[in-house]
């Protein structure tokens, strides 16, 4: 201490104070939007046609004319991407961006993206339904409920993109059970051996998803899954043709995934201003 003059000591104390103050300020930035960015929240809803999905009630009819009910839906979305009119895009959250939605678990119905969103005008939003090939590896999730979505190694590994479970009434009036489970598909040879796997994840480009975000704002985008759309367009999916399980039927998986492009729509976009 004797090497310091009094004036130097005062300067040192001031410098330490300033450093501490700056570090405090930067910690706060983690929790609240900074001066040039906002936050994005996705909320997930489910319907059949115009009406909210009612679980376990045989009241729906798909495009193939199959009366059906739904007991539950679980799925992953990932790779949320914001697009700008000039062609630029921002991929959000990178490796932390896989979100699990479960109609039985209300805590999964909101997805708070971790990344701050630069203030700007965005022309549209896209995401991957399921998990892309790079990330979809077994044991990526070890904790339930996500781990319960594992897709067997023998069938390609990784995770179910979706489990849509329910029952339908066949042409004889018999109630049958269905599992529309999609994930990595398989191609079999004539002896029943798997010759290769097919990545069935797909990109969903949301129409009417333009939004603007200003500094300090949060934008909440409500996405709706219309369950009927899984069975309707561009290809009609008929339970009486494909039966109760499709995990090992790549043609059926392909039809469902094609239809999946039209399943989601933007129901609402709300801007929330922070106090």
């Amino acid at each position: 201490m004797k090497y310091f003059k009094k004036q130097q000591l005062i300067k040192l104390i001031i410098a330490v104070f300033v450093l501490v103050a700056l570090s405090e300020a930067s910690c706060h930035k983690i929790n609240t939007p900074d001066i040039v960015s906002g936050k994005l929240i996705f909320t997930f809803e489910h319907s059949v046609g115009e009406n909210s999905l009612q679980i376990d009630t045989m009241k729906y009819v798909n495009a193939a004319g199959n009366p059906y009910l739904v007991t539950g839906i679980q799925y992953f979305i990932s790779d949320i991407c914001l697009h700008k009119a000039n062609g630029d895009s921002i991929l959000l959250d990178k490796w932390n961006d896989i979100h699990y939605v479960d109609t039985d678990l209300p805590e999964t119905w909101d997805y708070f993206l971790k990344d701050s969103i630069p203030q700007d005008d965005y022309s549209s939003v896209s995401f991957t339904f399921g998990i892309n090939a790079e990330k979809n590896k077994s044991l990526l999730f070890v904790n339930p409920p996500e781990s319960n979505m594992f897709w067997p190694e023998y069938l390609g590994g990784g995770y179910h993109y979706m489990k849509l479970n329910g029952k339908w009434r066949d042409t004889s009036g018999v109630i049958r059970l269905f599992n529309v489970h999609i994930g990595i598909g398989q191609i079999y040879d004539s002896t029943g051996h798997i010759t290769r796997f097919v990545q069935n994840f797909f990109k969903v480009q949301l129409s009417s998803s333009a939004f603007s975000i200003a500094a300090g704002q949060s934008v909440e985008i409500t996405l709706n899954m219309d369950v009927n759309e899984w069975f309707e367009s561009p290809e009609i999916f008929n339970f009486n043709v494909w039966g109760g399980g499709i995990m090992q039927k790549q043609v059926a998986l392909h039809i469902v995934c094609l239809n999946g492009h039209n399943v989601f729509s933007v129901k609402d976009i709300k801007t929330l201003i922070h106090e």
Partner: peptide, 25 residues
């Protein structure tokens, strides 16, 4: 155990991706 067209046990009882061999559901 782990194929839908086989015995289809894994959805409730786990497997490689869920070595607890139960979903506890």
């Amino acid at each position: 155990f782990t194929t839908e067209q086989g015995a289809d046990c894994f959805h409730c009882h786990g497997g490689y991706g869920n070595p607890l061999f139960t979903t506890n559901l």
